[in-house]
Design a protein around this nucleic acid. Structure first.
Length: 405
DNA sequence: CATATTTGACCGGC
DNA sequence: GCCGGTCAAATATG
C-alpha cells in the first residue's frame, strides 16, 4: 500500500522540479525580452511553475526519502523510514507515549491516525488588493469545504477543505485556510496530506479553458526571483470563500504591483494553533516553544522554510537573510481569469509522524496574542455566519457582504 | 436533479 | 470541560 516510497516518487519529484525549472527559464526569457510574451503566456508559465512546485512539495512532504540530486532533503518521511520530522518534540518532557487506546471506532480511529501521519505544510498567501478575492481561488485542486470554525484567540474563522475526490478516489488531502488578522490580505493555508487523486496530476489547461469551472485554473501568480538558489515560493490559492470576504477594509484595488515580503515565521505546533507570521522585524508572538531543533535542514527549500518540528524561537524571522525577501509580482493584472493575483510565500513544512503527534502543549502559551482581527464569516446566503463550531462564541456581526450595497 | 456550502452536533485529545 | 477538527443534515446554487 502506500507505505512504500517508491523510486518513482523520487523520479517524479525530480521530474517535476526539472519541469518547473524549465518553465521558469522560459518565463525568464520572456520577461527579459519584454514583450515577447503576452500576459497570458506569462501567466500560464507561472502557473505551470507553481503547479510543479506544488507537486514537488507534495511529494516531498509525503515521502521524503532522499532527494535526488537536488538539494532537498527536508523532511523525513512519515511513516517510512527515517523520519524525524518535525514535530516530535516532546513538549515538556512529557512523555508521549500515551496510550492510545484503541479508539474503537474504525473510522474515527482511522481518521485520527491519519491526522497524525499526514504531512503538513503551511503557506501564506497574500492577495493583492484589488482583486476580487471573493472568488474561489484555486490552487489547481478541487476542494470541498467541510467545515468552518473559529479558533480561540483568532478572530477569523478557519475554513476546512478536503479534496473533492475523497470519496471516490480516497484522496486524503485537506487544507485549512485561515485569514490573518492583521492583514486581511494574507491567508495562511495549511495543507495536509498529498493528493492522490488523478486530478492532481494534471496540469491545468492553458488559458483558454472554459470558464465554466472555476476550479481548474489558477490565476494568480507571482514570481520569485530567486537569488540564491532556491527560494521557494509557492503560490496557491484556494477557495477561501468564506474567509475571504472581508469588506471591512476593503481596499479597493490599489495597485497591482506588490511587493511581497516573505514572512517568516515559525510555527508550529500542533494542529491547531494558528500562529504564524510576522513581519520581519517583529518578532513576537510566537510562542515559545522549545527549541529543539531537530533536524532541520536548512537547505531545503528556502531559507527558512523548513523548520520542522522544533521551532526555535528565533527562527522566525530570520534576520537578514531570510527575513524578508521581496518578490515582485509584477503582474499586471488582467489575466486570464480576471481575478487576482496573489503573492505568496511559503513557509514551513511540517511532517508528522506518529510519534510526533503529541505536541501540544505549547500552543497554548503563546496564544493569544496574535490573532485578532476581524472577519466575518459569511456566506452569501444568509444564515448566520458564525462559526461552525457552534460551541459558543459567536460573533455576531452580521454584515453582509460587501458585495453590493 | 446533482453538487457544493453552510452550520450545528459530535468526537477525540488535552 | 475546553478546543479544534470532522461529520452530516439541511440548504443553496447551477
Amino acid at each position: 500500500m502506500e507505505t512504500k516510497v517508491g523510486d518513482w516518487e523520487q523520479k517524479n519529484l525530480v521530474n517535476e522540479l526539472t519541469r518547473g525549472k524549465e518553465v521558469a527559464r522560459q518565463l525568464q526569457m520572456h520577461l527579459n525580452n519584454g514583450t515577447s510574451a503576452s500576459q497570458e503566456t506569462r501567466e500560464y508559465l507561472v502557473q505551470k511553475i507553481l503547479v510543479s512546485y506544488e507537486k514537488a512539495l507534495s511529494m516531498l512532504t509525503w515521502t521524503t526519502s532522499s532527494p535526488a540530486g537536488d538539494h532537498l532533503q527536508p523532511q523525513p518521511s512519515p511513516g517510512v523510514s527515517g523520519l524525524m520530522s518535525e514535530s516530535p518534540p516532546s513538549l515538556n518532557g512529557s512523555p508521549r507515549s500515551d496510550q492510545d487506546s484503541d479508539r474503537d471506532q474504525e473510522h474515527r480511529d482511522y481518521a485520527s491516525r491519519k491526522r497524525k501521519i499526514l504531512p503538513r505544510w503551511t503557506q501564506q498567501v497574500r492577495v493583492n488588493p484589488g482583486m476580487g478575492l471573493e472568488g474561489p481561488l484555486d490552487d489547481g485542486f478541487s476542494w470541498r469545504k467541510y467545515g468552518q470554525k473559529d479558533i480561540l484567540g483568532a478572530k477569523y474563522p478557519r475554513g476546512y477543505y478536503r479534496c473533492t475526490h475523497r470519496n471516490v478516489q480516497g484522496c486524503l488531502a485537506t487544507k485549512q485556510v485561515q485569514r490573518s488578522d492583521e492583514d486581511p490580505n494574507i491567508f495562511e493555508i495549511t495543507y495536509r496530506g498529498r493528493h492522490t487523486c488523478t486530478q492532481a496530476s494534471h496540469v491545468p489547461s492553458p488559458i483558454l479553458a472554459s470558464p465554466e469551472r472555476n476550479q481548474d485554473q489558477v490565476p494568480p501568480i507571482e514570481l520569485p526571483h530567486d537569488h540564491h538558489q532556491q527560494n521557494n515560493i509557492i503560490i496557491n490559492q484556494q477557495q477561501i470563500t468564506t474567509v475571504l470576504q472581508d469588506p471591512y477594509h476593503d481596499h479597493a484595488l490599489s495597485n497591482f504591483r506588490s511587493g511581497l515580503k516573505v514572512v517568516t515565521e515559525g510555527l508550529d505546533n500542533r494542529d491547531d494553533q494558528p500562529s504564524f507570521f510576522h513581519f520581519a522585524s517583529t518578532s513576537n508572538v510566537v510562542d515559545n516553544v522549545k527549541s529543539e531543533g531537530q533536524s532541520h535542514g536548512h537547505s531545503t527549500f528556502g531559507t527558512n522554510s523548513t523548520m520542522v518540528g522544533g521551532f526555535s524561537p528565533s527562527t522566525f524571522v530570520s534576520p537578514a537573510t531570510s527575513g524578508t525577501n521581496y518578490f515582485s509580482v509584477s503582474q499586471g493584472a488582467g489575466n486570464i481569469n480576471d481575478h487576482d493575483q496573489f503573492g505568496l510565500q511559503q513557509q514551513h513544512f511540517h511532517n508528522e509522524s506518529e510519534i510526533a503527534e503529541i505536541i501540544s502543549a505549547v500552543a497554548s502559551s503563546a496564544t493569544g496574542t496574535q490573532t485578532v482581527g476581524n472577519y466575518i464569516p459569511f456566506g452569501s446566503h444568509g444564515h448566520q455566519g458564525t462559526s461552525t463550531g457552534g460551541d459558543h462564541f459567536d460573533s455576531n456581526f452580521s454584515f453582509d457582504n460587501s458585495g453590493f450595497f
